[in-house]
Computed example of a mutant assay.
Amino acid sequence: MAKIYNIAVIKGDGIGSEIVDEALKVLDATSVKHGFELNYNFYLMGGAAIDVFGEPLPSETLNGALSSDAVLFGAIGGPKWDNLPRDKRPESGLLKLRKGLGAYANLRPAMIFDELVDASTLKPQVLQDVDFIVVRELTGGIYFGQPREKRDDSAFNTMVYSKFEIERIAKVAFDTAMLRKKQVCLVDKANVLETSQLWREVVNEVAQNYPEVKVDFMYVDNAAMQIVRNPRQFDVILTENLFGDILSDEASMVCGSIGLLPSASIGGKVGIYEPIHGSAPDIAGQGIANPIATILSAAMLLRYSLCEKEAANSIENAVKMALAEGYRTKDIADFGAKEICTTSEMGGIIAKFIGKQ
């Protein structure tokens, strides 16, 4: 009897609906090929939820996500909701969802597609064999620290980390490294931040259980430079919430386009899978958004939450096949395009390549 999985689908705002639709198209093709079933339940979050429920994360959405095997998410936000109070803005819904699901470990791979090596502003020889992953702590740090306050003439936020929070994300990073090149680089600011000093202490303790893994330490300002200067030196970058947010976006541009890179937020009861880019309201509805990051996020969903590794490989191979054949969306059209595709066309092409494997 075929396995049946329940997927919570949150399209969100802006281009979210367009890119998620293409990921679902590819997932459907993959499930047929590999003999399992996917049941989709659709929920609102972000601006779309504010318009209907008056809040960015309705209880219906959180409860639906908690009762699912995984969450596939598009993107949220837009100028329509920019003037709302911080706790009512679309982005607060995503933060609450991550916290509510206990998804404390954010995995953001950064890899170079051979066909798109010229899409990066870096020289091809710098990019050769680049393949690293940022493991970002996602539910602690300055984004969640209390107290926090904005006054008329001042504002403050608090960065807080416990040994427990650091230890559990460090284990994710080391376990990830054991499946790769067995290198972990902790990125911090230990010369000025007490939280970073605690990170170093705890990571050194965890490292004792992974004698095969080489551990390095790097200040975040240097890491930002090194990702551009010599990204090939990295395997697993481990870092806290704020630094990981910034560095993973930098890594996406090293790879050529923010529209290409997926992410997984795992560690709790249910994982969340989403592209690292935003809702891009300026291009919403035009059919020009690149769905590849969301499609690759769906592959991560299959790998990490459903343990359907062969199915995940099929999606990743299909993306490579589509790029190798010269199919491009507008954002990467200048780099080896034989045919420029709409969002929907690119999803259909990748789905078709699933069946050709």
Rank of each mutant, 00 (worst) to 15 (best):
S154Q: 04
Y143G: 01
I142P: 03
V160L: 15
G100M: 02
R98Y: 11
R89H: 10
L95A: 13
G100K: 02
Y143C: 02
G64S: 12
F73E: 08
G74T: 07
A65C: 15
F73N: 11
I76F: 07
P109K: 14
E149N: 05
D51M: 04
I133E: 02
W81D: 03
W81S: 02
T121E: 14
G141V: 00
K96D: 15
M111H: 14
G78C: 05
S162L: 02
E167W: 10
K99R: 15
T121V: 14
S92C: 05
N63C: 03
P85I: 13
K123P: 05
Q146I: 15
A103L: 03
K96L: 14
E60W: 04
K171Y: 09
E137K: 04
R98L: 14
G74P: 05
Y143A: 00
T61L: 08
D114I: 10
S92A: 14
L66D: 02
L107K: 14
S68P: 09
F156H: 14
A173C: 01
E137C: 03
V117Y: 07
Y104K: 02
Y161I: 00
E149V: 02
W81M: 04
V172Q: 02
L95M: 15
P58R: 07
L186W: 07
G100W: 03
F53W: 13
L57Y: 10
R108A: 12
Y104T: 01
G64I: 11
S92H: 09
P90E: 06
P90Y: 05
N83K: 13
V160S: 09
R180H: 00
G141F: 01
L116C: 13
S68N: 05
T61E: 08
G78M: 05
S67F: 04
N83T: 08
T158A: 08
S162W: 01
F113D: 09
R148V: 11
P109Y: 13
P147W: 04
E55I: 12
V117M: 15
V117T: 15
G140N: 12
I133Y: 00
Y161Q: 01
K182M: 07
R151S: 06
L57R: 10
S59W: 06
F174M: 08
S59R: 13
T176C: 06
K96T: 10
G102I: 00
L138C: 00
G145R: 13
P58H: 07
I166E: 02
L57Q: 11
L84H: 02
M178C: 06
N63I: 06
I142N: 03
F53R: 06
E149R: 14
E167Y: 13
G74M: 10
G74V: 08
A119R: 10
V134P: 04
G93V: 09
K150N: 12
G100P: 00
V135H: 00
A65I: 01
R98G: 09
P56F: 10
I142K: 02
E115I: 05
C185W: 03
A119I: 11
F53P: 05
R86Y: 14
R136C: 06
F174G: 03
Q125C: 06
Q146E: 15
T61H: 08
